[in-house]
C-alpha cells in the first residue's frame, strides 16, 4: 500500500448552501467598482454564482432612469446575497434583511454582518448572535460573517445558520488569512459550509483559504481595487480552483530537512 492510500483524502462534494448547489466556490461583492459595466464584467470573469449587494436609501429627486445594479447582476442569473453592511446593531441588521427580502420578492438568503467598530469593522458577535436568532426565527437563511473563534462558529451553526463566514483579516485590509489555525479548527468542527469572508488581498490568499479546507471565499475589494479588476477576477477564479484541488489532493508532509527527489542510486561520479 502506498503512503497516499493510507491517508484519508477529503471527499469532493459540491458547494451546497441552503439546499442549492453551486459550481463556483468564489463569491463576490459588487462594491467599489468604477462603474456598473466594470462590475458586470468582473463578476462574469470571476465565474461567481453568488453575488452580494447592499441595501441603501434610494436617492430621491435624482435621475430615476439611472441604471440599477440588479439590471447588471440579474437575479435570474445570479443568487443575490443582500448584506447588512454598515449595521452596528442587531435591530438595524434585521430591518435591512426584511427590506432586502421585500426588494428581492421573498428571496430569503442573506449575509448577516453586524459590525463592532469603524476602525477595524470587526464583527460585533453579541449583536450578531441576537440578529441571527431573530432572522432564523423569521425564516431567513443566514450566512453569517463572524470572528474566527471556533466555538462561536459552532454556536452559529447550532443556531441554524446555513454558512459560517469567519474573517481572514479585517474587511478591505487585504492582509490575507491571519489565523490559519483557527480557520482550520472552524472547518474541522463545521457541518455547514465555511467561507472566508474578508481579508483576502491577492490570489495566493484565496488559495490558502481553500487549501485549509474552506468551502469557499467571499471577496470584494481584492478584485475591485486591483489595478486591473477583470484580470484579478480571473486570477481569483483560478486560485480558488487551484486551492480546492490542492486540498483534495492532500499536500505532502512538511519536513525540516531536504529530501532528494532524484534517485541517489546509479550516479556515475
Amino acid at each position: 500500500m502506498t503512503e497516499t492510500a493510507q491517508i484519508q483524502l477529503p471527499e469532493d462534494k459540491p458547494l451546497d448552501i441552503a439546499g442549492r448547489t453551486y459550481q463556483s466556490r468564489l463569491l463576490v461583492g459588487t462594491g467599489q467598482y468604477h462603474d456598473l459595466m466594470e462590475t458586470g464584467h468582473a463578476i462574469e470573469t470571476s465565474g461567481a454564482e453568488i453575488v452580494t449587494v447592499a441595501v441603501r436609501r434610494t436617492n430621491i429627486g435624482q435621475n430615476p432612469d439611472e441604471p440599477n445594479l440588479l439590471d447588471v447582476v440579474n437575479p435570474d442569473t445570479y443568487t443575490i446575497l443582500p448584506n447588512t453592511a454598515g449595521c452596528y446593531t442587531a435591530k438595524d441588521a434585521v430591518r435591512t434583511c426584511k427590506l432586502a427580502r421585500e426588494l428581492l420578492d421573498g428571496h430569503d438568503l442573506v449575509k448577516l454582518e453586524v459590525l463592532g467598530d469603524q476602525k477595524t469593522l470587526y464583527p460585533n458577535m453579541p449583536e450578531t448572535l441576537v440578529a441571527a436568532e431573530e432572522l432564523i426565527k423569521d425564516g431567513f437563511k443566514v450566512m453569517v460573517y463572524c470572528s474566527d473563534d471556533p466555538l462561536l462558529a459552532l454556536r452559529l451553526e447550532e443556531m441554524g445558520c446555513v454558512a459560517v463566514m469567519p474573517l481572514g483579516a479585517p474587511i478591505g485590509s487585504g492582509l490575507g488569512i491571519q489565523n490559519r489555525y483557527n480557520i482550520r479548527l472552524i472547518v474541522e468542527n463545521a457541518s455547514v459550509p465555511v467561507l472566508v469572508d474578508a481579508g483576502v488581498g491577492t490570489a495566493s490568499d484565496a488559495a490558502i483559504a481553500m487549501e485549509l479546507g474552506c468551502d469557499g471565499v467571499l471577496m470584494n475589494t481584492a478584485i475591485a481595487k486591483a489595478r486591473d479588476p477583470i484580470k484579478m477576477a480571473h486570477a481569483m477564479r483560478l486560485a480558488i480552483e487551484a486551492g480546492r484541488e490542492a486540498y483534495l489532493a492532500g499536500r505532502m508532509p512538511k519536513k525540516l530537512y531536504a529530501s532528494a527527489s532524484s534517485p541517489i542510486d546509479g550516479t556515475f561520479f
Partner: peptide, 10 residues
C-alpha cells in the same frame, strides 16, 4: 417612510 434599493456592496 424609507424607500430603498440594491447598490454595490461586499
Amino acid at each position: 417612510v424609507e424607500v430603498v434599493h440594491a447598490i454595490g456592496g461586499g
